[in-house]
Design a protein around this nucleic acid. Structure first.
Lengths: 201, 201
DNA sequence: ACATTATTATGAACGTTGTTTTTTATTTTT
DNA sequence: AAAAATAAAAAACAACGTTCATAATAATGT
């Protein structure tokens, strides 16, 4: 049979991604399936496989969508001092994670089969997150070497990510506002410890 | 058919866990299944469900086993100065994660269905990891309040965990030894930044 | 020692999953 | 208008976790 050209492939892609995002607001990835997504948008599993390549790649597309969303949100925080900006990014990061639990999990727990590396597009998006912190660090430590900036931005980001992940799974045993306090402690503490002059923050 | 009584339930439990651990050394969780585990140990899927309750609980048992393993390893590092101990724990933590990728992932990515909380046993084990750092912190900052110690231990652990997770997924874009440098930078930097006197480390 | 009852691992069945292959309806080309 | 190409849907497949009835053993009562 063939209901041809009611939607373009690009349209179907967007519809499928939207359906997944909607579902993930209320349910976990576990409760989702290719068949359910297909049914939701009035298509059939094999059609989605045809378009995305596999269920895995469909999920990857959703992951990239989410990553772009997150990146856009974080880019807002560049109007204050570098330290405040990084701190606000940290809080925004964890807030996004807690508000979009399943999406956030999807982004960071989805791995390719057979230990294949993630697509470059995906890795580029993740790098762009680091770049945001790197940029702020350069502002308050212009004399630092590129390599030091790189290390520091990753340590900062790693800490923010780790605290967020653990909190997300209830493995930090703290309240929401405790998490904020810890994120701030991490950002301030580490930056201070690395000897960046306070008056530059 | 029937009670073979060749092995006790406890024995079957251990056999199943061992089979999963073995599999996870070479393949991801994705390539595993209840049926494969059953076949491996010469039993049948329904038997394992009978004993563990579900596939999920079987995986949870493996997760707890791994967590105990990891905890035992980290407990070794208590013979030097507190700072060195925490730093060594951080490196041991990431080394364990990279050497037992799939097991480590299982521990931190396995979540209960329907947003059920993890069993208390599991949470207790995770708390014991924090406790190790807490203990070291108390040694070098005896005047600090319990609450401050708690925050610091979680920040330290969160950072170690975050860097490890990102590195595990190739999302840090660094080499193995770069990761060590970052872990050390994190531990030293944060502890320094929190104003703990250097001569106590 | 035998018959009965209680266990308990098992095998078959169920409903679902992602994916592949085949079919069929539509579009395009000749 | 007929033939070829295309593409979406239907059907088939293998594998999954789980449930249920069955059959074989162990335990018990006589």
């Amino acid at each position: 049979m063939a209901r041809r050209k009611e939607h373009s492939h690009e349209q179907i892609k967007q519809m499928a991604i939207a359906a997944v995002l909607l579902h993930l607001q209320q349910d976990s990835l576990h409760g989702l399936s290719l068949r359910k997504i297909a049914a939701q948008i009035g298509y059939v599993p094999s059609t989605l496989i045809n378009i995305f390549g596999s269920y895995q790649y469909l999920l990857l597309a959703v992951s990239e969508h989410t990553l772009m969303n997150l990146s856009a949100i974080l880019q807002e925080f560049t109007t204050q001092t570098p330290l405040a900006n990084i701190n606000n990014m940290a809080i925004a990061y964890s807030t996004f994670a807690l508000e979009h639990k399943s999406c956030f999990r999807l982004v960071f727990e989805l791995s390719m089969p057979d230990d294949q590396p993630l697509p470059v597009n995906h890795l580029t998006l993740i790098k762009s997150l680091f770049a945001l912190v790197e940029c702020q660090l350069r502002l308050c430590a212009p004399s630092m070497s590129d390599q030091d900036i790189e290390v520091m931005s990753r340590v900062l980001w790693g800490g923010i990510h780790g605290l967020t992940c653990l909190a997300l799974d209830g493995k930090l045993f703290v309240t929401h506002s405790d998490l904020h306090a810890m994120l701030t402690s991490h950002v301030k503490g580490y930056i201070t410890g690395m000897g960046i002059h306070r008056d530059l923050l």
